[in-house]
Design a protein around this nucleic acid. Sequence first.
DNA 1: TGGCAATGTGTATGCGGTTCCACATTTATA
DNA 2: TATAAATGTGGAACCGCATACACATTGCCA
Lengths: 343, 343
Amino acid sequence: MRKWWVAISTIYEVAQKAGVSVATASRALNDSGYVSRESRDRVLAAAKALDYHINVNARSLTSGKTYTIALVLPDVTNPFFPAVARGVEDYASDNGYCVILCNTDGNARKESDYVRMLRSRKVDGVIFAVSVASKSRVSALTDDGIAVVLVDRDLGDSCDIVKTDNIAGALLATNHLIGLGHTSIAFISGPMSLATSQERFRGYHDALVSGGVSFDERLVVEGDFRMKSGYEAMRDLLRKPCQFTAVFAANDLMAVGAMTALEESGFHVPTDVAVMGYDDIDIASVTRPRLSTVAQPKYEMGWIAAETVIRRMCNPKASRMEELLQPMLVVRDSTVERRGASV
Amino acid sequence: MRKWWVAISTIYEVAQKAGVSVATASRALNDSGYVSRESRDRVLAAAKALDYHINVNARSLTSGKTYTIALVLPDVTNPFFPAVARGVEDYASDNGYCVILCNTDGNARKESDYVRMLRSRKVDGVIFAVSVASKSRVSALTDDGIAVVLVDRDLGDSCDIVKTDNIAGALLATNHLIGLGHTSIAFISGPMSLATSQERFRGYHDALVSGGVSFDERLVVEGDFRMKSGYEAMRDLLRKPCQFTAVFAANDLMAVGAMTALEESGFHVPTDVAVMGYDDIDIASVTRPRLSTVAQPKYEMGWIAAETVIRRMCNPKASRMEELLQPMLVVRDSTVERRGASV
DNA sequence: TGGCAATGTGTATGCGGTTCCACATTTATA
DNA sequence: TATAAATGTGGAACCGCATACACATTGCCA
């Protein structure tokens, strides 16, 4: 039902004003099929005069395309995601798509609700930063012919994915620490249920053994990627009898939390203990000391994810695409050569 | 054109499987009008069996509602916005709406492009963090019967708005500094073309005069709300012959930039010069010293903006709504009592 | 000059729903 | 028991657009 208090014009009115049929108007507007120069001009003029804007919902009905993609992530408020979102949005809007934002809080229930909603909205694709293992939700989408690409968080080989090489990143970080002379390196991991976390741990572990540094299980504690958990993880570490001169946190937020805990306990970063983060979020460059970290190309991840999902729509039968981006070591002030005794 | 390789069921198929007409199926599915208990059950069962999901685009065609709102802002990557985006999304999704994200970069051209796009998509409402004076764009939307509410950035009395009291906030900040004994307080403003910036300047200015502190024009320099501009503004300030013991930056990003410049020039924050920010973004609590600032209720702004825009849709003729939230002083480590001589 | 391809245009149909309305049944009321 | 009201149901129109198809008209070539 049209809103009676406003006058939005339809293609019928445009056609009428231009003195042609809707078919011709449609062709002129879409620049498709045969239209005489004269007709086209008159339709375009009429459209402009009436301030005509197509109703894309109506178009979607016939075309089957909505030119909409969804970005489903745990929380935009997590400083890792805005850049990803921006990358997605930039590529999408450049290509005529718009993006729907969905925050799941890593909550399976919310994820399911969004999946249902996105199916009803007939979005063309979804970029999914899954937080819980949710193959069934992904396949609900793909079964409807919706293109899905995962960002950052892997989920087996079920669908396209763009991520950075977490193992390589953790290797980079750990080797940096080893290169600095550290031989007791603690690790604050993310939730071990996430492939991302497992891979970073793997990189940490492998760097240790290949660097001839012994791995001490007591030196790894699990966090949840939030600042507070980094803080608490460090308090745990400090309470243990074992010693370390460096700590590698699986993300920057936890690294900052760890730095705070260290400071509160009277330790000096980086001389007493070096700390290394992961992600290179904005915060990393303004802490004191400035945080050494490994940068993920966040914007590019989003951008490429959007590119991938759009490519997938055009070619549903293509083989699985996997884009593995390379992380980059960013050395700042929170990591220096080992000096003092272990703490 | 249906995608031939997938089987998405329609209400016709549901009706057929349930052995009723589409009209009845529709009523059963929407719980509207008269439907016998038996029919309803059979329709619901058929829907479930077929994994039926309504096509909301088709529904929009008749109902004229898309249950979609757009959030148009300069850049999600600006740490101020993710929280408001989250607020918007939370309220919206709780009420059955989904939100489209648009980044304009404060670029009039992009704004116009998005406005056109949103008109074509027939969104029900848009939440607009305008960056350039763009009354014409706003009225293009409202003329189409689209509800518009401004967040943060004002634009005269053209439409609904939710913002925080910038004058009050700047008063809070400046009075805090004055209360600490500072009598030469520099000000790094935002772009003076924005009402937001003007208001914060106004609060700064008014606090000065009412606090019996003389206002020195040379002590205010204009930035662009980015960190780098805060850095450069401070360099400017340092180069001038005038002296100051405190600086109030119109947002946290610029405050951090200013702190960096100060530090580089050998000044100690807060003892040599106190620095005060605005916004209370995440970064503010992890700088060293931790930044004193005035907090805006960002999440609430988004949440209330969504509430307001939805209310407006239901009641297009209601009188203008203006929601003025109160900012809050957050004192951390970057501001202390004046001690040394002016710099 | 005939015939065929290239152009241009309009009618009608369908996309997937909702809803008005006409038509049955029941049920309640006088 | 006659009648009115409540309850169920389906046919068909319509939302705004795209497009298949039929039907002109024109241009070109043999």
